[in-house]
Design a protein around this nucleic acid. Structure first.
Lengths: 151, 151
DNA sequence: TCTTGACCCTCCAGCAATGGGAAGGTTTAG
DNA sequence: CTAAACCTTCCCATTGCTGGAGGGTCAAGA
């Protein structure tokens, strides 16, 4: 199988197949004399594993760890489980943050009449001159144009 | 106020304050003769608006649109509301995806005994040689090392 | 056999939204 | 006056991808 076929077989784009190889997540594929990558069934199976892990929201580093465990018959299932559960905690944390944002926005939107009058509690709330929370910082680009079209 | 004070007052890091200016999200700050940025109370209010919008998960482009609406007294609240509700939809979509991942992982983890035996349904499931879903592709780095330590 | 189009290759650049740091000027307290 | 604490700009890295340029390869058809 060449890379295009491997892409179809795994659901991973050609670009990503090359990328995963480049960052060392998977072994470099074999090559034909002319330099084309060739994939064996085993390679495909590994790549499918990678795709499924990614679909479950694992980061590349974690997928690497899972792959190591998968390929290592002598691993302890406890290791796998703790990796998975730690990941679940992260996902749940993100979900909590999303929930909060959703609730706040829905609350604000509910109180916005949404007609052609300009007063809107959403903007009013964003502009409230109250609190001054925890820090963050920016970096580099250009002039202010086209933001209005972002809607 | 100089940039450090503005950072404390808004909860936006110094780096990000410079970045937001650079990408044109906010007007360039005034400068002292020696080139230090100075922020007025109005600047601070605008930046607080930006920070709150960001806390609600809006992307910079959307924040730009919100800012335009905020500064434009003649806008229609319907515009604001639709922007907000569209954003809520995106957040809800992400939430659904997270839910699915969490449910799948919890299910798998529940069936993993998590002791020192090697067999683990989590890995087994990831490795199942079944489906071949929608495409994606990779790009560039180096050899496979240290992934095991990623746990 | 030549050509054409569909592949493949590598390298480079970019997205978002940050963080980090170097090299250097400024301000301020002691 | 000096030294620390700030400020400035510029560049690099991160994460997981996408896109394109510039070129080689392969297979089918004329």
């Amino acid at each position: 199988m060449n890379i295009g076929e491997a892409s179809k077989a795994t659901g991973i784009s050609v670009k990503m197949l090359r990328y995963y190889e480049e960052i060392g997540l998977v072994q470099p594929a074999q090559r034909t004399e002319s330099g084309y990558r060739i994939y064996s069934d085993k390679n495909i199976a590994t790549l499918r594993f990678v795709r499924r892990a990614r679909d479950l929201g694992f980061q590349v580093k974690q997928i690497g760890a899972l792959l190591d465990l998968w390929e290592n018959g002598s691993r302890a299932s406890a290791d796998v489980k703790s990796l998975a559960l730690a990941h679940v905690s992260e996902l749940e944390q993100r979900r909590r943050e999303l929930d909060e944002m959703i609730a706040t926005l829905n609350h604000l939107a509910r109180n916005c009449h949404g007609d052609d009058r300009p007063d809107c509690p959403i903007l009013t709330s964003l502009g409230a001159d109250s609190d001054a929370p925890a820090p963050r910082t920016p970096r580099k680009k250009r002039s202010r144009k086209g933001f209005a079209s972002a809607r």
